[in-house]
Design a protein around this nucleic acid. Structure first.
Lengths: 341, 341
DNA sequence: TTGAAAGCGCTAACAA
DNA sequence: TTGTTAGCGCTTTCAA
């Protein structure tokens, strides 16, 4: 069983190695000037005693905690996972560590989490989305660290933004369905609020349908976001009960779209001949299932990469508040068999 | 843009409210005795100045950092997500926050991560699996905090264990396939090493096949774990090239199993009539796809819940090193249409 | 290249 | 109920 003893400190190492604590401190910083032999002696003493530096103490003193706080809605989502990978990869080279929290798609939980994370003094904080409680907003604005909002294009950003227009991406999908000959197009998504990106996709659907002179009323609300495959399947049932002549359905995510597809399989509805299906997010499942599902790829990894760059920039040049505070991504449509052929 | 000013401290609040810093400190602890009016004045002063307590300083002084470190292999996995939910829910009520890191199924990355997390002085650390680099092991053993290994039953645990036998779960699946009349059974999983839980499942397959007097050589290695749906599909191709008369295939996870299922759909192989398919993990996809896939449910949330309880116990009774250091879960077989009917 | 002194922001322990 | 003192483990700053 792991012990309950107290951890050795720099002072212990210093004593063991016969130097001052300050020299120990230097020995652990790669760039600082320490006699090679002295350093070796110190590191070996540290190893002998099982020393692990206390970064909270280091941070208190140096004002550099060496970590960046990141909040994502869910820890079970390939899209956000890719963004976090992009962040981790981008920050690692500068020695910054990512500390992760998840909000469960809940702005109140987000407020709790942001408060907690800020208390640990991250060097920057990256949040998903541009909708927060008023308190979260205030806290973030008052905080002394760079704030980056991702996955969205908030009208009134707190700090920097790395995102895309979910509404425009939806509109792209509508146009694709119209171009492939469908007019009676439906939308399946979660209830309003909560998942604001999903909400924006719905709004984008509505706006583009009207622009195309089509009827935008075929909409199903499938429950609390994030809606799952199961909810996608159930939503398709409801959709076909109410509007049996629907020609195409676009779903708030590939997961819901796949659920809808399975429902078609169970009912013997041919996709895309009887019904076209489109999703969102370029999840693996949409590529592998039969038939593969048309989707939109927002380039999630790139969002993380760019956010990491923004962090590094803000951290280096203190004064020059970098050029544009909005880094805009362009999601790409991926047309597959579920809507054509 | 968020500011670059320095954050107010307790001393600032104390001055503003006309009390001592110590009183401010007490005002923020719910249980401590502070005059109601004084507390109100302090909290309002704090609010006015946008004060956010520095928990790193608090932890340095009190030796209680208020967080628990958790490492998982992937942030895109429903199973681990459920475990983390169980942990978060169980620890929240005691005011402990979960700080998450992911290892990418890589023990070297795990070592890096564990080192980093330990430098921030968590009150406990929870890792996935029982296989680590020697250095990771040493560091964890030397650390002054409770260590919990999950999702596995390591032979030589570092601290406490909350897990199950992946091999035995596999064996269960083999028996199910034999009982439903299959003899020519194959296994699809990742290459050895890396994902040790997957490796154990493979070993369990092999052992039980031999126990049943069946030929265990039908095994496909599908690449670096975690293997995806796509790799599951490709593995099925290879399997059928080499052993076209295979009657059943069990996959290291439901995701791989679903990939295999899609390959059957593309080739016109009837499941389960021509080929039975089983997975692992009770992912949503196995329940919703057509036909639904037989699987094993390890009760991931429960693993997290129990681990949280272990943490709380270790943290309260310092001396009494709780009863058994191994909490053993029993995964349940879920038989579905992909192997029967 | 090394060391000494001071202090980061907070809380434990004691005193009033 | 409130305040004072000391110090958590490290780094900054200055001096040697």
């Amino acid at each position: 069983m792991s012990g309950r003893k107290k951890a050795p400190t720099m002072a212990d190492i210093a004593r063991e190695a016969g130097v001052s604590p300050m020299t120990v401190s230097r020995a652990f910083k790669a760039e600082s000037y320490v006699n090679a032999e002295t350093r070796e002696a110190i590191l070996s003493a540290a190893d002998r005693l099982g020393y692990v530096m206390d970064k909270t103490a280091a941070g208190l003193s140096s004002k550099k905690t060496g970590f960046v706080a990141v909040t994502i809605p869910s820890i079970n989502n390939a899209n956000f996972a890719d963004t976090v990978r992009g962040l981790t990869d981008g920050l690692r080279e500068r020695g910054l560590q990512v500390l992760l929290g998840y909000t469960n798609y809940d702005v109140v939980e987000e407020e709790r989490l942001v408060r907690q994370l800020l208390m640990r003094r991250p060097e920057a904080i990256i949040v998903t989305g541009g909708v927060h409680t008023p308190a979260t907003r205030r806290i973030l604005e008052a905080s002394a660290v760079p704030v980056i909002e991702t996955w969205d294009l908030p009208k009134d950003p707190i700090g920097t933004v790395v995102g895309f227009s979910n509404a425009e991406a939806s509109a792209q999908l509508v146009r694709h369905l119209v171009e492939t000959g469908r007019n009676k197009i439906a939308f399946i998504g979660g209830d309003a609020s909560r998942d604001t990106r999903g909400h924006d996709r719905r709004k984008g659907f509505l706006a583009e349908m009207e622009r195309q002179g089509l009827d935008p009323t075929r909409q199903v609300e499938a429950g609390q976001p994030p809606i799952s495959m199961r909810e996608g399947a159930r939503a398709l049932q409801r959709l076909l009960e109410q509007w049996p002549d629907t020609e195409a359905v676009m779903c708030v995510s590939d997961l819901a779209a796949f659920g809808a597809l399975t429902e078609c399989q169970r009912r013997g509805i041919a996709v895309p001949a009887d019904l076209a299906i489109a999703g969102f997010g370029a999840y693996e499942i949409g590529e592998i299932c039969v038939p593969p599902i048309t989707t939109v790829d927002p380039d999630c990894y790139e969002i993380g990469s760019l956010a990491a760059q923004v962090v590094l920039t803000s951290l280096s040049q203190d004064a020059l508040e970098a050029g544009s505070p909005v880094v805009r991504i362009s999601p790409k449509l991926i047309a597959r068999a579920s809507t054509q052929g």
